[in-house]
Design a protein around this nucleic acid. Structure first.
Lengths: 199, 199, 199, 199
DNA sequence: AATGAATGAGTCTTCATTCAT
DNA sequence: CATGAATGAAGACTCATTCAT
């Protein structure tokens, strides 16, 4: 099936990018990992760049979908923020390889990816900033805080992914970040989240 | 003078890496920016990789030097942490282009740079984690918090550097991160720092 | 067909090396001679060095094959030597360009090639030395004699190949060397070989 | 003194060429070996090529000088040949490094050197061929024989020089070649030469 | 005469992309 | 749809040579 091939290529690309970095990964390496011929890659992606772009899009689709679903169940703004953060961490944890590739390799790879990444970061930052209405910060401070949160989660993710041995404690680290950010914004204490079953 | 040439090349490299990314930057572009011939580059750096490595080292020498100097004037652990953060922000602000290149491009460029970067990140994280002794967190939480802080500062820096028009509010953003992190760790409130003259 | 391409490249390499020397020959020149693009070269050889290595191997495969075949038909040691020399000359004559490249360029090009060449020279020298058992020389003298023969044949080949105009008299020169060496070793006179049809 | 510098450079060049091959040797390596700056090389040689040319010339000046001196003491043609060969071996033995560089590296390095080398080889070959008048060979056979002798001596030299450990038996090997060649040409037996003191 | 930093042409090699089969 | 041989532009790096000091 057509989608299977594309899927296999994307999955292979994640693995190879993770291993070799975006620039270090050759299309040949990706197709070998995916078990098909070099030319086949170009039946599914116009270029190598488009493949990474697709991965960026995929990560944020999933993050945004998770966040949106979580927010849909809440009405209070602080509740929305609390569950949004949990949802984001959950997606990062579930898609850890994808997320590590996108957050680690995309910013340095080219202005193209920087921009594409920033578009979605902006979207998320806007949501967070909005939710911080009750935190007693001005608009610019809220945007700072939102970027800070994004950076913190990203770094914690990449850090955990680099820890070769032992089980990654990504989920736990995400909870620490959430609690710290929450308190840092001066919001009222909340109880911890349940640990999800690992993927 | 020999150091002038090397300095000019490093400065040119920062500009070109910032503009084109590490991989996108050709040695020819760097030497053109520096106003010398291609071969001259190799009189000062064994390879393009060594040039980026030198930039990584340079950033962290400066950060560590700034942090060490600031800490030397304090005795209480929380004071040490508070001034360390200010010092780090000050260096990032002062060396914003260098910092943006290193933090944005190095992680994705190759495992080599990832490792080199991580060595120093670990050093800083250890300092921060140590200073958090009074924050009532266990060792692992403190390490999480330290990584979180590093990621937050890095992201805020890169974000501000990407804002082409208008004066970057990097220093202010750094203060916001510091306050938020401080409160997030449950440490007692402090007054704000004075804005330094911009470079 | 795959072997055709590789063959065409090897043949082109021989011509270009002959014309420009190994170091003077660029990969571009070889591929132009072969009628393909530069990159194609690297589909068939990991590097320019490997191309020359392949030529060295090829020459000695053919020499050894020819010698082995000739020896197989003889039982007396002096007969073996006599036909071995004829066979070697025949291969050199038949593969004159290949032989000229290998014998003229390889020794000076790099220790790598020197060693590779010497491995096979040693093999041949050992054969010859063995066959000289009845010539009343000690082991070391026989080895000297063998090396002398190899040098003599090589030089005569390169000399004839450098004679641009007129038909090369390589075969005849080889016969002269054989007779002279034979008598020099004190072996009983033999009748001359038939001139083979030229290639 | 001017000639000292030039001499030091030539000697350094021999060592470096021997170690790295002509193409592999950089002018920088030669000047480092000679203990002077890169630019100094060009005060004594117009180019790297001219340096090797000078070495080629030097080798043959010495060979020809030795041969001429030896011949001057003889009247009979066969005596002339006999002492010429001894003289040539003596020079090769005495200037073994120079000879190895010239004979091993020059032929493959460029047509330029091939020609320069051939001019002198031709001179020697002509002498030898002339001396073989009484050997009952026609002119062409005599030329073949002369080339054969040159190739044999060269190969024996390079072979011995490649033997790293132990004292090179170059002189002895030269005697073996001389005896074998002599008998091969059908000339009357001679007694062996005295071993010269080693350099 | 001596220096050695600077030059820049030229080389090998890689790899994203195409296209005939 | 799939293949993988072929392409050729681009880039890192080397090194013979020059020249200001």
């Amino acid at each position: 099936m057509v989608e299977d091939r594309r899927e296999a290529l994307l999955r292979a690309a994640i693995l190879v990018f993770l291993r070799e970095g975006y620039q270090g990964a050759s299309v040949k390496a990706i197709t070998e990992e995916a078990g098909c011929a070099t030319g086949t890659f170009y039946l599914y992606f116009p270029s190598k760049d488009d493949c990474l772009s697709a991965l960026i899009d995929r990560l944020y689709e999933r993050v945004l979908a998770g966040v949106a679903a979580a927010r849909a169940g809440e009405t209070a703004v602080t509740d929305k923020l609390w569950v949004s953060m949990e949802a984001a961490v959950r997606v990062f944890d579930h898609e850890r390889q994808l997320a590590a590739v996108v957050l680690r390799d995309a910013p340095g790879a080219s202005p193209l990816f920087r921009d594409r990444l920033d578009r979605v970061r902006r979207t998320l930052a806007a949501l967070i900033a909005e939710d911080l209405a009750e935190a007693g910060m001005d608009a610019w401070e809220r945007e700072c805080a939102a970027r800070m949160l994004e950076g913190a989660l990203g770094e914690v993710l990449v850090w955990q992914m680099a820890q070769d041995p032992g089980p990654s404690r990504l989920w736990d680290a995400g909870q620490v970040v959430r609690r710290l950010f929450w308190r840092g914004c001066g919001l009222p204490a909340r109880e911890a989240a349940v640990v999800p079953e690992s993927p």
